[in-house]
Design a binder for these strands. Structure first.
Ligand SMILES: [Zn+2]
Ligand SMILES: [Zn+2]
Length: 804
DNA sequence: TAGGCAGCAACA
DNA sequence: GTTGCTGCCTAA
């Protein structure tokens, strides 16, 4: 038998199947989807079996046997392997990268080089002896200097030492030791009678066991809570009262006991209609995509819950995607309330072990519902009944680095595989999705009423130019200050949004204006207050903040925070009695900080929550009756065709935060461009109006959804080389692409240098994937054969979420 | 002429 | 991604 194996090496030349002979003893255990240990050149590495066959074209002399079958049960389903092939083809990435991404990080193998001392008496060099310490081996560090390596290699040639590569698995299954008591109850009496008088502890433990009347007790409980040492237990085990066994346990991030079970809510007529349309499609086993457009508070989640419940009732599984930032404990609780321990949760806050355990529960079908962020779309269920993506417009559903997949595309692919519906839900759908719904590619479902909430809050626009004329130079308009004062007098809460997308704090010299930049990237360094250091977001560079300016030696160094600090001071002056919580990149760097700030605000520990766009999601607070947007327009003027769409989505989202409950809410938008349509339509809560206006501009500019965008980045350490490569490539594209494809560039990329590499960018606007797919593959092949080895980089992103 | 080192193909 | 081979250069 022959196994087709994709090996664990992420290089394009290796990213294909290799045939291995299956030794006789493994023929009954090898399965497609299992991992295997294989010889590859002089090494041993991990690989995935992607096929089994009886014959191979490979030279008989080249053929090798696989060494070991690692998994007795396949890790990857047939579906996942097919999906990986499609993702490779569609996003121009490596198949092995997709396969690795489908599995939890804990299953990834790592490789270590170990130096083993063979003849200890023949080694003279003191430095080398020190490396071994008292052992006869050491792990070769990655950053070891080359002279030491040379010395070691020489000794290896003489046979004094040898190099070995060790394959390691990161995290294993967690096991807990249990004392299993014997079934034979007479043994206890026998042992007890045979005890000598000085065996007081053993006697006490026997009595305790008798009083507990359990058959299995965790060793931890016996030692920590009952206060017996392991020696006492061991002695009794030796006398035959039972055995110590290891039991597999799951590291469980959700406490199911503490969550009260809840029944489905009565749906409104509008919800019922939407639900039944999906249900009909579900019953027909159709792979239909629904766009559920419902304003904030219109009850989309109840439709999700009931659809999932129905899928489970006929033995199917469900995948529920939520953007990472909205995946709060409150969010997951809603699912646990309905489905109890049938829910698995996957998000970035889990440890590697917890993620692995959640994944195993999914893989073994011990849970039926997955609630998770982007990567949860790869949940290895085998009988999916419905896939739901909440807030489908979120750009975080697109993975920024390879494999550059969009969760929406994966969702639709999987729905076709399982013949089940997909629900894309949003209050402000992406233009792409809404346009597809208009064309009938997706089925549009609309919710316009808010069953439990007040009508959408009135939005007031404050023209900050007028404030300037009145002589108010503060970031707070007179109206906003007045409204805030009014809320505080009623003991209500206020949310303030500082709309400064993408800005982080930087370090600047006040005398000459020099901004501290990364020496290897054309980007300013980010100031980290916690340790007084400056870091580069794009490479590993890190340095303490200088005491004097490197270009003019002045010591007037200033830090520009995300802007929230300055506003914090101003609030303290205006409302000295009010407590405030700040939420921005600085205060949420630590894991869990985000959730704890929101929780504190929910507990009324402060009356003001000030933050950047990250506050737009998450909890809804019943006591918040005013949302103030300090600078509604700053994101409008970034050079991105989605700027208006993103601004509208953000404003719509924060507006929904005010007055979701019995109290009436208000929104105040401060702006320097009150006439802009994104702001005007936000005020009117008019998605459709915004959609029509924005579609007009997209049509004018030939932007999505009228076209698709492809972004190609060329980079090299040498500026002239990369400009030459970019020019040649783009010229070739122009000559070979059909006229319907617009080729823009090449031009210097917006981040012109990254990790010491100069960057050029080219943009493609095309209408059909077939128009560019073939040529992009060809461009990549030319890159692999002629450019890659000379230090060039080529990166192709289809439908980038940001134009960088 | 041995030793060293960069460049490169092969990995089943 | 690594490895070991090849051919060229350099120091003795
Ligand atoms: Zn950098
Ligand atoms: Zn200066």
């Amino acid at each position: 038998m022959i196994a087709e194996v994709i090996v664990d090496i992420a290089t394009s030349a290796i990213d294909r199947k290799f045939d291995y002979l299956v030794p006789e003893r493994y023929t009954s255990v090898v399965q497609v989807g299992s991992r295997v240990k294989v010889p590859f050149g002089p090494r041993e590495i991990m690989g995935f079996i992607v096929g089994l066959k009886e014959e191979t074209d490979v030279d008989i002399q080249k053929q090798k046997e696989l060494m070991d079958v690692v998994d007795l049960h396949p890790l990857l389903t047939t579906e996942m392997m097919e999906l990986a092939k499609w993702v490779k083809q569609d996003t121009l990435c490596l198949e092995i990268d997709v396969l690795q991404m489908m599995l939890p990080a804990a299953l990834r193998s790592t490789y270590e080089k170990v130096v083993v001392l063979e003849k200890p008496d023949l080694i003279k060099d003191e430095e080398l002896i020190a490396l071994f310490g008292s052992k006869n081996f050491f792990v070769l560090p990655k950053d070891i200097d080359s002279t030491t390596v040379k010395k070691l290699k020489r000794l290896a040639d003489e046979g004094i030492l040898s190099f070995e590569t060790v394959m390691k698995q990161k995290t294993a299954v967690k096991k807990i030791a249990y004392l299993e008591l014997s079934q034979d109850t007479t043994i206890f009496q026998q042992v007890k009678e045979a005890l000598t008088a000085n065996a007081k502890k053993q006697l006490a433990l026997l009595d305790k066991l008798a009083s507990e009347n359990r058959t299995s007790i965790a060793m931890k409980e016996i030692t920590n809570e009952w206060g017996f040492t392991k020696a006492v237990v061991d002695q009794l085990v030796q006398k035959g009262i039972g055995t110590i066994t290891e039991k597999e346990v799951y590291r469980e991030p959700v406490d199911f006991q503490s969550v009260e079970k809840k029944s489905p809510l009565q749906m409104t007529e509008e919800q019922q209609i939407a639900y039944e349309k999906v249900l009909h499609s579900f019953e027909q086993h159709r792979a239909e995509t629904f766009l559920l457009h419902g304003i904030t508070g219109s009850g989309k989640t109840e439709i999700y819950l009931q659809m999932i419940a129905h899928a489970l009732s006929v033995g199917k599984q469900a995948i529920m995607l939520v953007p990472e930032i909205a995946l709060t404990p409150q969010m997951t609780e809603r699912f646990v309330e309905r489905f109890g321990s049938q829910v698995a949760v996957l998000h970035s806050g889990l440890s590697a072990g917890e993620k692995y355990d959640q994944w195993r529960k999914i893989h073994r079908s011990e849970v039926k519902v997955v609630v998770g962020a982007r990567s949860a779309i790869f949940a290895p269920f085998e009988n999916v009944g419905v896939i739901i993506m909440d807030e489908e417009h979120e750009s975080t559903y697109k993975q920024e680095d390879s494999p550059r997949y969009h969760a929406r595309d994966i969702a639709i692919w999987r729905s076709e595989y399982h013949n089940c519906p997909v629900i894309l839900g949003s209050a402000t759908p992406s233009l792409e999705s809404f346009a597809r719904a208009q064309k009938g590619v997706y089925t549009l479902l609309t919710l316009v009423n808010r069953p439990k909430s007040q009508p959408l809050p009135p939005v007031q626009i404050v023209d900050m130019r007028e404030e300037m004329k009145k002589g108010n130079r503060s970031v707070f308009s007179i109206d906003l200050v007045e409204a805030m004062r009014n809320r505080f007098s009623r003991n209500e809460q206020v949310v303030l949004l500082l709309n400064k997308r993408g800005y982080s704090s930087f370090v600047l010299c006040r005398d000459c204006g020099t901004v501290m930049n990364c020496p290897s990237c054309d980007i300013s360094l980010t100031y980290h207050r916690a340790n007084e250091r400056m870091k580069c977001h794009y490479c590993a560079y890190e340095n303490p903040v200088p005491t004097s300016c490197p270009s003019c030696q002045s010591d007037h160094i200033r830090f520009f925070g995300s802007g929230t600090q300055k506003i914090e001071e101003e609030i303290a002056k205006l409302f000295p009695a009010e407590k405030m919580l700040r939420m921005d990149v600085d205060t949420t760097r630590k894991k869990g900080a985000h959730a704890s700030i929101l929780q504190a605000f929910g507990n009324q520990e402060a009356s003001i929550l000030l933050g950047t766009q990250m506050i737009a999601k998450g909890l809804d607070f019943p006591n918040v009756t005013l949302v103030g947007v300090l600078s509604a327009d700053t994101a409008l003027f970034v050079p991105d065709f989605r700027a208006a769409e993103k601004t509208f989505q953000l404003l719509a989202q924060v507006s929904g935060r005010a007055g979701r409950h019995d109290k009436e809410g208000n929104v105040i938008l401060q702006t320097y461009s009150p006439e802009h349509y994104a702001i005007q339509f936000s005020k009117a809560h008019d998605y459709q109006g915004f959609y029509r206006q924005e579609m007009f501009y997209r049509h004018e500019g030939k932007y999505p959804p009228y076209t698709f965008i492809g972004s190609i980045i060329f980079s090299h350490e040498d500026l002239l080389s990369v400009s030459d490569y970019a020019m040649k490539s783009v010229q070739w594209l122009r000559e070979n692409l059909p006229d319907s494809v617009e080729v823009i560039g090449p031009s210097i990329a917006s981040i012109s240098r990254l990790q010491n590499r100069y960057r050029y960018q080219c943009l493609l606007k095309y209408r059909k994937d077939e128009d560019v797919g073939h040529l992009l593959h060809q461009l990549q092949n030319v890159y692999k054969t002629h450019y890659m080895k000379n230090g060039y980089h080529l990166s192709i992103t289809k439908n980038p979420s940001v134009l960088m």
